[in-house]
């Protein structure tokens, strides 16, 4: 296969960056997209040019490291597929392929296709956990969990934190990621005590990181490699509303009789 690539090149956070074009003629259909990128980099290296920096690690669709917008779609044209799991057989011979980094002000470009997603970690720090210490715990079977609920929690927990939802969202919103984590814990009995605080603090962290507002386009769901459902966004909205409007602020305050 012969392909023409247009790749975003940017040498540092402060560099302006630009698109650059390359041609590759030794691509085969069975190659994964990242193997195609390896081939490009090998070629650039041998030619004495700088290879394209891109994040990747597991190359099997779970670490959430790979992050390319391919022809305008986060992780490329195949749905429910990470960049590393995309194969060249999904492109035509002679195809022209545009490769760009995730675009969002909360994800600054570090170099070429590498972006800084530490904002996601900080959202988790704001409450994406069950407060816990290591040590003896009750037997798990003492709290049975309806399998359907456990599975729904797992659907949410399947999120790999790649950030494609943000990249895909025209508003740069991180609601899909945030809601997936909040729902994973919010659905399980272990997550109940902190459920409403979690919703509030994760959302407020998400805002202060500079993510945009969700406008229910569902573009995130469509481009999410794990197919995380926007149903979780609805759940988070509802938890957030309850937390803000219904949950008592002052449970233990003084009361007087009339």
């Amino acid at each position: 296969m012969r392909i023409k690539l247009h790749v975003w090149r940017q040498s540092s956070r402060s560099d302006k960056g630009h698109m650059e074009s390359y041609e590759l003629d030794n691509v085969v259909e069975e190659m994964s997209f990242l193997e195609m990128m390896d081939t490009l980099n090998e070629k650039l290296t041998v030619e004495g040019k700088e290879p394209v920096a891109f994040d990747h690690d597991c190359r099997e669709g779970v670490c959430g490291m790979c992050s390319m917008v391919i022809n305008g779609e986060a992780h490329g044209p195949k749905s429910k597929t990470t960049t590393c799991q995309l194969y060249m057989r999904h492109f035509d011979d002679g195809a022209e392929i545009f490769i760009e980094p995730w675009r969002a002000s909360a994800f600054p470009v570090v170099r070429d296709l590498v972006v800084d997603r530490s904002a996601f970690d900080r959202i988790i720090q704001a409450g994406g956990y069950v407060s816990n210490h290591s040590g003896p715990k009750p037997d798990p079977n003492s709290i049975p969990i309806e399998p359907n609920i456990a599975e729904t929690a797992l659907d949410a927990a399947t999120c790999i934190g790649c950030g494609a939802c943000v990249a895909a969202c025209p508003n740069g919103s991180a609601m899909l990621f945030t809601s997936a984590k909040a729902s994973h814990l919010g659905l399980l009995p272990q997550g109940q005590p902190e459920r409403f605080d979690r919703a509030k603090s994760m959302v407020s962290q998400m805002e202060s990181e500079g993510f945009g507002s969700c406008r229910n386009y569902a573009e995130c769901e469509a481009q999410c490699p794990k197919g995380i459902s926007i149903a979780f966004i609805g759940r988070l909205n509802s938890d957030f509303l309850k937390a803000s409007l219904v949950e008592p602020i002052d449970r233990r305050g003084d009361m007087k009789a009339q």
């Binding site: 305008g72 545009f98 675009r103 002000s105 969202c169 945009g212 573009e219 769901e221």
Partner: peptide, 25 residues
């Protein structure tokens, strides 16, 4: 909200494509 979103996504893609968002949306 629209202003926030514009700030959140200051740079647009050279090539962009929508998988799900409806025109109405």
């Amino acid at each position: 909200l629209a202003m926030l979103s514009a700030e959140a996504r200051p740079v647009s893609y050279v090539k962009s494509k929508k998988k799900a968002a409806s025109l109405a949306a």
